[in-house]
Each structure stands twice: as C-alpha cells, then as structure tokens.
Amino acid sequence: MNLLAFFRRRDSAPVARERLQVLLAHERAVLGGSDLISVLQEEILAVIARHVTVDRDKVQIRLDRGDLVSTLEVDVEVPSTLPNATRTAHARA
C-alpha cells in the first residue's frame, strides 16, 4: 500500500452511519403506521377511476427514493374515446 493512500484512507464507519440514516428514514416512512406511498397510489387511482375506466394493466407506477424527496409517478393510460379526459393523467406525489 502506498503511503499516501494510507494517510488518505477514509474511515468506513461514517459511511455506514450515513447509509443507515438515509435507508431508515425511508423504511420508517413505508413500514411505520400507514404505508403512505401505497395509500397515495390507491387513492389517486380511485379518483381517476371515478371519472374514467381505468385498465389496471395499463397503469405504470415508478418509485424513486431520493435523499430528501421521493417521487411516486403514476402513469394512467386513458381511452381516447372519452371526450373530456386528457390522454394521460400524470400524478406526482
């Protein structure tokens, strides 16, 4: 091992601490009490379904967990025959 690398060696414990803090913040939100993300997902779909027929197979859901903000994308394909509905309802939570 070269001497410089030895002195520049980064402690691993702070990395562990940071990873845990980010991870647990998410896991507590998802597991603790009500499952916010899935509740939102269900309620958003229910609202859309009240106005248009939603085909469950044509719903795309993506979840992205960021450090500070998580995004939930719900893409619902709406049949084009309906006059007043937009083609795609895009919800972000």
Partner: peptide
C-alpha cells in the same frame, strides 16, 4: 479508529 459505528451513532439512529 473509525472502523466501527460508535455507540453514539447507533443510539442516535
């Protein structure tokens, strides 16, 4: 030596 989480880290988390 910074190789293991400290007591305070675990307690805080």
């Amino acid at each position: 030596r910074g190789e293991m989480l400290k007591t305070e880290d675990v307690l805080e988390i």
